[in-house]
Design a binder for these strands. Structure first.
Length: 411
DNA sequence: TGTCCACTGGAAGGGAGGGCTT
DNA sequence: AAGCCCTCCCTTCCAGTGGACA
């Protein structure tokens, strides 16, 4: 390691005691503070799995960072620890934001039961029916209880409908040896409305709501983790209360609280100072917010980037809010400039809606009476910074210092 | 009160790209 | 190689709509 470029970054002592993953939301500690009630309730429902019986299906509701995922994974770990030779229990956790198609979910579950790599279900190519049949067959090879936790199940339903849930809920009718129960996790209470009544009643045999943490509870969580992550005296006294207070403002999100603390510590660490201060937390807050936006913009498909560029250029010219029609004209101009294919206006309205959902622009439907009904669009990110990020793109880099020719109608 | 504008947003379907089966 | 199936991105078509204006 001598004389390498890393030399200057290697110090005798880091602020972190050891593993900094302890402060990541994905880390599951041995004790989850303020979630004892929920864990006990889940345990009382799932204990029948250990007795070889099928537990009720459960639906968990609660905003982000209220401990739904952590509790579920914790319970999963405990189940695996408690399993006896007599009754076999398989616990499967899956995030439906990552795996968001009917086929994908069945394929993923199926592959958990297939050890031989050559026999694995491919990620595309088979009919869903066939995947389902293999899955059922493999599951049924042994007498066991299978608990499937589907995180962010609302994403799955909104994207691919409730067919998979329907299949999974009634799979028990087709199984002789195995028994399946489903844990659905959602941060959207309304998603139930979109379910087929049969799926709804089957999936929600038991319902649990995870309330947001308040500032005091967040403080406890942070204190527990910081004891594992740092030595005494590393954090200024006000650091944890500040992280807790900031996260409590955002609907009691423990994930956000942990991120704040971790990033604040990383900032202090990088500055080679021995103590994490309040100002590090404020810096962390700004950094997290900016990183989110930057990452969202950078990973946009190129057509969406062009649309966003249209919004930014109009804003920089001082046109204020612009309509879908105007933005489409601007977008066409930018396409010609960059030799990109021009998509239809219908498609662009979808891209506008996506950008709106990501929080990068703000678009709301407005009627101008005889002037028609359209969307009013304005950026909701810092314009200059966003433009710089867009210009990093190979194709968009041609638009450096570009001035629009098209004149909007709305002034 | 009815008209009419400039869209919105749902539905259906095409086709490219991935992969399997026969 | 031909015939399937699945997902993703996109187009085409079109009924529906809020509200200013005649």
């Amino acid at each position: 390691m001598q004389d390498t470029i890393f030399q200057q970054y290697i110090r005798a002592k880091s602020i972190f005691k050891g593993d900094r993953d302890i402060l990541r939301p994905s880390y599951i500690p041995d004790i989850l503070p303020h979630r004892e009630a929920q864990i006990n309730q889940m345990a009382s429902i799932l204990v029948s799995a250990l007795e070889g019986q099928r537990p009720s299906n459960v639906l968990l509701f609660g905003k982000t960072g209220t401990g739904k995922t952590a509790c579920t994974k914790y319970i999963g770990k405990e189940i695996e620890r408690a399993v006896s030779n007599l009754n076999k229990v398989t616990f499967i956790y899956m995030n439906c934001e990552v795996v968001d198609t009917q086929y994908g979910v069945l394929q993923n579950i199926g592959n958990k039961f297939i050890e031989n790599f050559d026999e694995r279900i491919p990620f595309t190519g088979w009919s869903t029916e066939r995947v389902y049949n293999i899955l059922r067959e493999k599951m049924d090879e042994e007498k066991r209880v299978i608990v499937i936790a589907l995180d962010e199940v609302d994403k799955l339903v909104s994207k691919s409908g409730d067919d998979v849930l329907y299949h999974l809920c009634r799979i028990n009718d087709d199984l002789k040896n195995a028994k399946v129960s489903v844990i659905g996790i959602s941060n959207d209470l309304r998603f139930m409305e979109f379910l087929d009544p049969r799926v709804k009643s089957s999936l929600a045999e038991e319902k649990m709501v995870f309330p947001p943490y308040n500032a005091d509870q967040l403080k406890d969580i942070l204190e527990q983790r910081s004891k594992l992550a740092f030595d005494e005296g590393i954090l200024e006294n006000s650091v944890i209360p500040l992280c807790a207070a900031l996260a409590a403002q955002e609907h009691g999100d423990a994930r956000r609280a942990l991120d704040l603390l971790r990033v604040a510590a990383e900032i202090a660490d990088r500055n080679h100072v021995p103590v994490v201060t309040e100002s590090d937390v404020i810096k962390a807050k700004n950094k997290i917010e900016l990183d989110c936006v930057t990452e969202a913009i950078r990973t946009l498909p190129v057509q969406s980037k062009l649309v966003l560029m249209g919004v930014l250029l109009n804003d920089q010219r001082g046109d204020g809010k612009l309509t879908t029609g105007d933005l489409y004209e601007t977008y066409k101009e930018l396409c010609q400039c960059t030799s990109m294919a021009i998509l239809t206006q219908r498609r662009i309205t979808d891209l506008i809606s996506e950008l709106d959902m990501l929080g990068i622009i703000h678009a709301r439907v407005k009627s101008f009476g005889r002037g028609g009904r359209t969307k009013e669009i304005e950026p909701s990110v810092p314009v200059e910074e966003a433009r710089q990020i867009l210009e990093e793109d190979e194709i968009l880099s041609q638009l450096k210092n570009y001035k629009l020719r098209y004149q909007t109608t709305l002034m």
